[in-house]
Design a protein around this nucleic acid. Structure first.
Lengths: 223, 223
DNA sequence: AATTAAAGTTAGGCAAATCTAACTGTTTTG
DNA sequence: CAAAACAGTTAGATTTGCCTAACTTTAATT
């Protein structure tokens, strides 16, 4: 391991602390939560927290809750970025299904090479969201949270990108597949029908088609 | 690490033993050679050799030389396979140069996922050689050593794939680039000129062109 | 063949990451 | 508010991979 680089394990701790903190009001988390997330035991976490404190990656005092420092968060975000870019690669390029990508991405996210990620991102066409619809941080760590809105709220003539669904029933997913819409699909709203809220949509240069209000209300997009 | 899976370190030892053995007449290697290859010290190697012996991955007796067992070699070959497929990915897909791919592939080769390699190989179009012209073992561990011959020896009307060069001077490499020939390029010999040994070549559906005998003698291909 | 040189192995130790068992602090609650 | 429950830490052991120093075996050389 090159000097300055973190170990696989340290990176996993930062990632866990990051994601647990994000889910909390006070942007912090606890020893036990981390232990549970990483399927390890609290004493192990206690040890690591001391180590990460020494490296100034977390702000932590005995018996208190844990928060990432600015540099700790920066590193965590870079790992998330790598994880999500690899997920896009696995899904879009290698045709893994949505649910198969995570495990492998967990390994790939720890590959150390700036250049690799830069080129991978370029190859993938600078995607903004992973196959689960979660946003991909930029190289600078910016989390563009292009507010996710309902397709039904998109204005006429606007381009948007599909980032998730509200309904994950089989019929709905099959319908999506049939009309060739998936996470990441970019589409344009070319018309709306006042009468019943139907929408006319265009994908790339394919023929336009119409979807119902019920449909568009179940698709999440970002501008 | 899932049970049965080898650690990063163990995999590196097998790979080192494999490549050092291949280069020897008796298909074996020594403690010191391994230590040097892995930039570690002989006692460390001694320890690991005991461990690998216990796992029946190597045939080894104290103070004697080391050989891989059948299963050890099988595993080593799979690692080589992964390494070379990743090299192709880095070079062909992500446009890394020939000399940049190795370091990153050293990390990627240890990702554990059969499915990943299966899909990666398919995506890459089942390449037979890596960017350095070394053969890629099949999923079954077969090392197709489609004898590398001189392009000048290829018969009229035969398809072949470029696997290496004899000359690596800048002018030659620049010429290769200019006429769009790289490692992995598939081409067809469509004619030969008796007079001076020139060759008429076709790549995919591009226009045919002629190369000199001096040129074709410096290109290695496989049938 | 005896001695030196080299190759290889033990012994003992260290650091990282993990565990269990026992202890200490904090929180909840009757 | 005291006691139980929970959360968190320390202590001490284990495993893996690595090291140096000292020893042993094999090989080379005079």
């Amino acid at each position: 391991m090159k000097s300055g680089e973190l170990s696989f394990t340290e990176e996993n701790y930062l990632k866990a602390i990051y994601s647990l903190s994000e889910r909390s009001v006070s942007f912090d988390t606890s020893t036990n939560e981390i232990a549970e997330r990483l399927r390890t035991k609290p004493p192990t976490v206690s040890d690591m927290l001391k180590k990460l404190t020494a490296k100034k990656l977390i702000a932590y005092e005995k018996y208190k809750r844990v928060q990432l420092t600015k540099s700790g968060r920066q590193i965590a975000i870079q790992i998330v970025r790598k994880h999500r870019l690899w997920e896009v690669f696995l899904h879009s390029t290698l045709k893994f299904s949505w649910d198969e990508v995570h495990e492998v991405a967990e390994q790939l996210e720890h590959i150390h090479s700036e250049e690799l990620i830069t080129r991978l991102e370029k190859f993938l066409g600078y995607p903004k969201f992973d196959p689960h619809g979660d946003p991909i941080p930029s190289a600078e760590g910016e989390l563009e949270d292009g507010k996710r809105i309902n397709l039904s709220e998109v204005e006429n003539g606007t381009n948007c990108q599909v980032v998730g669904v509200m309904d994950s029933s089989t019929p709905f997913l099959q319908y999506l597949e049939q009309i060739d819409i998936a996470i990441g699909t970019r589409l344009k709203v070319v018309g709306k029908i006042e009468f019943d809220g139907s929408m006319i949509i265009q994908i790339k240069k394919k023929p336009q088609f119409t979807v119902s209000k019920k449909f568009s209300e179940n698709v999440m997009v970002t501008a």
